[in-house]
């Protein structure tokens, strides 16, 4: 087959997965938050309100696209895509099952984390280009936030790499299926990874960039119609990507303990998605319950807690691995 055609098909498939996931996640957010808040969430359209999302997206698509008068026009137009496209590209590296992965380079973990660090720049561009003060504050917070969580995020993703001896996500999953899920040996890393994931996806208690009550809608204050919709979707895509990454690194990916890959067959995808959505559910419950950190507390959490802890943990972990290896080698 023509390799270009294959690539195109793969890209389209990823886009479909991403949009579906975004739709599901938004629907789930409204339902989960609704039930957590003694409400019901959407019920009217379709079975259990499932068609609500269709209405929302169609409406956003056909709404007027406004440009503020004094905005930086080009930057304003491309910013949502800077947010949207990288989070779309990260989907390519997610191993949904042993065969279903769109791109599988050796350094897929690194590639994924590299792509994940682009959206904050888009957020910054969006906030800056809007020429709104609230949006600008949100933009500045996005950049400040990014340098805060990126390093602990990377460091907390390292122990599974050390255990598996590979930067390839698929390899990490496979090596987990032969030993144990890495959440057990690397529990502190897992917890730190979850916290950093919350920061990365800017969800309450770390939603500095949006901060509805402070910054109205943060960087998205001046965006309307589908441009706003794109950024909204990207947020949920990131949410899924972080959950997928956590599942892949720590929770055995698409595998289940005691069941071989062949036995799982096509259900591996379902196992993977179910694991992801359990984590997303956790994120959403936290989002619906907790207060928001103040921006300086946020920095404090990142620089004074997460960073030292993760550095020390990495050293302890590496030393422990070395000692175990030496003991094994000695025996």
């Amino acid at each position: 087959m023509n390799p270009w055609l294959v690539a195109l098909l793969r890209a389209l498939l990823i886009l479909l997965v991403m949009l579906l996931n975004g739709a599901m996640a938004i629907y789930m957010l409204r339902k989960v938050l609704g039930h957590a808040h003694l409400r019901l969430g959407p019920t009217e359209l379709g079975p259990a309100g499932l068609a609500q999302l269709l209405a929302d997206i169609v409406k956003l698509l056909v709404k007027e696209d406004r440009h503020p008068n004094r905005s930086d026009r080009w930057l304003y137009i491309i910013a949502p895509f800077i947010v949207f496209v990288p989070s779309f590209m990260t989907f390519a590296f997610i191993p949904f099952s042993n065969k279903l992965v769109a791109a599988n380079p050796d350094l897929s973990l690194l590639m994924m984390l590299a792509f994940m660090s682009i959206p904050p720049l888009g957020i910054f561009a969006a906030g800056w280009a809007s020429r709104s003060k609230f949006a600008t504050i949100g933009a500045v917070r996005a950049v400040g936030g990014m340098i805060t969580y990126e390093i602990p995020l990377l460091l907390s993703a390292l122990p599974p790499v050390m255990l598996a001896g590979s930067m390839n996500l698929q390899a990490i999953v496979v090596s987990q299926s032969t030993s144990i899920w890495y959440v057990l040996p690397c529990l502190p890393s897992f917890i730190m990874f979850l916290i950093c994931a919350q920061m990365e996806t800017s969800q309450t208690p770390f939603d500095m960039t949006e901060a509805d009550q402070e910054l109205v809608a943060g960087f998205a204050t001046e965006y309307s119609a589908m441009r706003f919709g794109f950024m909204y979707l990207a947020e949920f895509a990131e949410n899924f990507v972080m959950a997928a990454l956590a599942v892949t690194l720590f929770l055995g990916g698409w595998t289940l303990p005691g069941i071989s890959a062949a036995a799982l067959g096509p259900f591996a995808v379902l196992v993977f998605v179910a694991k992801c959505y359990i984590l997303i559910f956790l994120f959403m419950m936290i989002r619906g319950t907790y207060s928001r950190y103040r921006v300086d507390h946020y920095m404090e959490v990142g620089w004074k807690r997460l960073l030292p802890i993760s550095v020390v943990w990495i050293m302890v972990f590496a030393a422990a691995l070395r000692v175990i290896a030496m003991l094994k080698g000695g025996a």
Partner: peptide, 18 residues
């Protein structure tokens, strides 16, 4: 909780643009 317009897809946004 009691009236919950979200059932009808009616929800609040903080910004006029949205």
């Amino acid at each position: 909780p009691r009236f919950d317009f979200d059932r009808h897809g009616i929800f609040y946004r903080g910004v006029p643009r949205h």
